[in-house]
Design a protein around this nucleic acid. Structure first.
Lengths: 187, 187
DNA sequence: CCTCCATATATGCATTTGCCTATACTACGC
DNA sequence: GCGTAGTATAGGCAAATGCATATATGGAGG
């Protein structure tokens, strides 16, 4: 999957591995993330497959950088992926829910503490998505040389992040409230 | 992570690999899933580490089954995991959002088709969570010999599934509407 | 009769992922 | 002067994951 993310970004603009990581962190972190080493490995594979080419830029004051450019074959593969419909839902793996599922066996107070901590983390996340304004998106559009059309879709993914965090916080609030009511009489 | 899911279920009741898979599918599929081969591998490892033991039950009409039972060490490790707070949020990898992010480069109609297909899939998912009633949870409680306390937490995870799907459908509705408005004049 | 499905376990293999480490230079703060 | 952070690439290794396949039996449906 990561290969398509990389091809997608390179389809806008030639970039090196380090910058790809930063661009991804800035714009896609609420639905995708990848380790730097993972990105370098994928770039190597993509080049071996002829999807991208690279040139080494010599720098005097900074480390040399290997800049990757998408090829025609790369554009084709990417376009094909974009056009192929997803016939399934991305399955969720949510560690907190796994823990909660078994939490009848845990100390009630410990569960509450953990839920409150998660609520705090999700609140911060929500705030970040909410603050990621239109101007931020415009900044990324300039950086990548993307079109104004892209802003619409980028904002849609930002909106998905906001809705997700709001939903998550609502669920945490509900669940914490339920546990607090029960705890008044018990352990 | 899967090891804790397995320990968690075995903490209620001794089970074989095949049944563990079914129990997980029935009760945890909206926040965790695992391949059968993955479950068998993990059971093997857990036994090597002394977290579980197994006995082979000979069946005449059916294949023999290896039934796993949690050990004291297993219970300790599981309890420790339950008590250790998660200091981070589970990162999301959502393929649809990755595609949507780059979808300014795709045919507008193709994007709409894909979003509508996903909406249909999520609607079905929501319906399943909504229909997974209290009686279903009670059935699982009996099957595993869990306590009534568990019902509270199991229902909380079910509720999380409902909220997630409602949120997702809302986002899809929003996004589809936005694209439809734009498409009236364009490609 | 034959195929598919359910029950049941297990191995093999490739891919993906995560985390750690090495290398190398600059700049900034203490 | 020294540690830390930023820029930049890359290899190593273990763990997790996914998918296919092998084996074996019984029952249901066409």
């Amino acid at each position: 999957m990561l290969r398509y993310a990389l091809l997608g970004f390179l389809n806008y603009h030639s970039l090196n591995g380090y910058d790809l990581k930063n661009v991804m962190e800035d714009s896609a972190r609420n639905f995708w993330h990848a380790d730097l080493s993972q990105i370098y490995k994928n770039l190597k594979t993509l080049q071996e497959q002829g999807m991208i080419t690279s040139t080494l830029e010599m720098k005097e004051d900074r480390p040399d950088r290997r800049v990757y450019t998408i090829t025609e074959a790369g554009r084709r593969e990417f376009a094909e992926w974009l056009a192929t419909p997803l016939t399934e839902i991305t399955p969720i793996k949510e560690v907190l829910l796994l823990k909660i599922f078994f939490s009848a066996q845990a100390e009630r107070i410990s569960v509450l503490t953990q839920l409150r901590l998660q609520r705090e983390l999700h609140r911060r996340n929500l705030q970040r998505y909410a603050e990621q304004t239109v101007s931020d998106i415009e900044k990324n559009i300039q950086r990548l040389g993307a079109s104004l059309d892209d802003a619409l879709f980028w904002d849609a993914t930002r909106r998905a992040g906001v809705l997700y965090e709001e939903m998550y916080i609502q669920w945490l609030d509900e669940t914490i409230a339920r546990l607090e009511t029960l705890s008044e009489g018990g352990t």
